[in-house]
Amino acid sequence: MRGSDPRRFADIALSDQAIDWMVRLHSGTAGESERSGFSTWRETSPAHEIAAREAEALWHGLGRAGGSVRAESKAARGKLTRRTLIVGGAAAALGLGAAVSDPLRRKVLADYSTGVGETRDVVLPDGSRAWLNARTALALSYSAARRGVRLMEGQALFTVVPEPTRPFFVAAANGWTRAIGTAFDVDMRAQSVTVTVVEGVVAVGLEGGSREGVTVRADQAVRYGPQGVAAPQSLDAGLATAWRRGKLIFNRRPLEDVVSELQRHTHTRILIAGPSLRAQEVTGVFDLDDPQSVLDTIEQTLPARVLRLPLLTVIL
Rank of each mutant, 00 (worst) to 15 (best):
S101E: 14
A76M: 06
K107G: 02
G181M: 10
V198H: 14
D121Q: 13
A144W: 07
A134V: 10
A130Y: 01
A57V: 04
M188H: 08
V161T: 09
W131P: 00
A179S: 07
D102T: 02
L58I: 04
Q155P: 06
A110L: 03
L58M: 05
I86V: 08
V197D: 07
L94H: 09
D102C: 01
E56I: 01
R147C: 05
F158E: 03
R77V: 06
T136K: 07
V198D: 14
A144G: 09
L151I: 11
P167S: 14
Q155N: 09
D121R: 14
D187M: 13
T159S: 15
R82N: 13
T81M: 02
G127I: 05
T165A: 12
A93V: 03
T81F: 03
R82Q: 13
A156H: 03
N133F: 03
P125Q: 05
R77C: 07
S141C: 14
K79P: 00
F158P: 00
R106G: 11
E56F: 03
R129Q: 09
V161K: 05
W176G: 05
V201T: 01
L132E: 02
A156I: 11
S113I: 04
V123Y: 01
R147L: 10
L109E: 12
A145F: 10
V193F: 08
R146M: 14
G200C: 10
V170R: 15
S141A: 14
G88D: 08
V69S: 03
T136D: 07
A130H: 01
G63P: 01
R147K: 13
A190Q: 07
Q191G: 10
D126M: 02
R64I: 02
A57Q: 08
A179G: 04
R189T: 03
L109D: 02
A76P: 11
W131A: 11
G89V: 00
Q155D: 05
L157P: 03
I180P: 08
V161Q: 06
D111E: 04
T114A: 12
W59Y: 10
V123F: 03
L157Q: 11
H60Q: 13
G61I: 15
D102P: 01
D121I: 09
G95Q: 08
G200W: 10
P162T: 05
L85Q: 00
A183T: 15
G61D: 15
E72K: 15
P103T: 04
S73V: 13
M152R: 02
T194P: 09
G67Y: 01
D121E: 11
T159K: 14
F184E: 00
S143Y: 01
S143P: 04
L85V: 00
D111A: 14
G61N: 13
G89S: 12
Y112M: 00
V108T: 13
V160W: 05
A145C: 05
S192T: 00
R150Q: 13
L109A: 11
K79T: 02
N174G: 12
R189N: 11
R189D: 06
G67K: 09
R129E: 00
W131G: 04
A92M: 11
V69G: 02
Q155I: 03
V201M: 10
G154T: 09
F158H: 07
R150F: 11
A190E: 08
G117M: 08
V122M: 10
T182F: 11
A98D: 05
A110Y: 00
V186D: 14
P103Q: 03
A98H: 12
R135S: 06
V201E: 04
